[in-house]
Design a protein around this nucleic acid. Structure first.
Length: 303
DNA sequence: TAGGCCATCTGGTCCT
DNA sequence: AGGACCAGATGGCCTA
């Protein structure tokens, strides 16, 4: 809610128009000399000046004419302007909703510290680049490439934020990954951890979001729709999991009900017994083997 | 306090 | 004619 909504919109716009008027090019000024503009000035308490002075007789003649024909028409114009404003607001709101949806599927999502619009777009573009490269090559890039690509063109604060979301710190890498057997790919999930798992963490990293977000043939495997379709992820409570050598770190602002999670492959590899003890701000999930995950990840097994 | 980000209003342009 | 889209301008809020 901005002051524009709480205050009389014409109040600020009047000042705006006064200023704009002084710098606008001639072709724009022409329109402002129309009855519509005069009417608006009247409403904002500004203005008879166009008619009283300034452009003298021609305007005055036009002015008298417009006063004669204007009332009903001007009322319509004013109404149209109000309606157009409302439509524009709605349009921008839907655009913002779409951006929010985008925020939820890029690697760094936080409800309390939202990425700006421009940074969201940049990060999304970078993310797509990474995923595209993965699809193209069938291999996951090395960590450095991933991070560099992801943060390409991002501002320093956003880079820090993304790094924070991804928990990019040396200690995590060294202590938990042993130098290279880790994954920071939000689109990935690990597998084969736990009793039935193999422990090769490099191989355990598998892309996941890339397919989980599609409405394509892999969609049913997840029982999860695309970003266009509502999903637990899109409900806004989940952010992409980060895997460090089989340990997921999930940072969220709100608790997540993992028991009702449809993204079983991504989030539900935890027993219900433990779910109540989860710290939503730093959740470590122990992966379990899922048959469907094996299916899903087939295309991503390195050739 | 400056700068970044955002919501809103507005007029122009294009399209149906 | 009217709606969608766009870009410019502005003021408010927040943070370093």
């Amino acid at each position: 809610m901005t002051s524009n909504q709480t205050n009389n919109p014409f109040r600020t716009n009047w000042a705006t128009n006064q200023l704009v008027r002084s710098v606008k090019p001639e072709h724009s000024r022409a329109l402002e000399d129309t009855p519509e503009y005069g009417r608006r000035n009247d409403e904002m308490g500004g203005a008879e000046e166009d008619e009283e002075e300034g452009e003298a007789s021609v305007l005055r003649r036009r002015g008298s004419h417009r006063k004669h024909v204007s009332q009903a028409r001007l009322e319509r114009v004013r109404l149209r302007r109000i309606e157009a404003n409302a439509r524009e607001r709605n349009r921008m709101h839907s655009l913002n909703n779409a951006l929010d949806s985008l925020r939820k599927v890029v690697p760094c999502y936080s409800k309390t510290q939202k990425l700006s619009k421009i940074e969201t777009l940049r990060l999304a573009k970078n993310y797509i680049c990474v995923l595209g490269e993965i699809l193209r090559s069938g291999k996951r890039p090395d960590l450095l490439t991933f991070v560099q690509t992801l943060c390409k063109g991002l501002s320093q604060p956003t880079t820090n934020l993304v790094a924070g979301c991804l928990q990019l710190n040396t200690r995590s890498f060294i202590s938990e990954s042993g130098g290279e057997s880790f994954s920071l790919y939000p689109a990935y999930n690990h597998q084969h951890h736990g009793p039935t798992s193999e422990s090769s963490s490099v191989d355990s990293v598998r892309p996941l979001r890339a397919f989980g977000s599609l409405c394509g043939p892999y969609g049913p495997l997840y029982n999860s729709p695309s970003p266009d379709c509502p999903s637990p992820l899109d409900a806004g409570t989940l952010s992409p999991p980060i895997s460090f050598n089989g340990i997921f770190s999930l940072k969220n602002e709100e608790p997540v009900d993992y028991r009702s999670c449809h993204y079983g492959l991504r989030y539900c590899s935890i027993s219900q017994d433990h779910s109540a003890d989860l710290d939503p701000y730093d959740i470590h999930l122990r992966g379990q083997f899922y048959q469907v995950q094996e299916e899903l990840n087939k295309p991503f097994h390195n050739q």
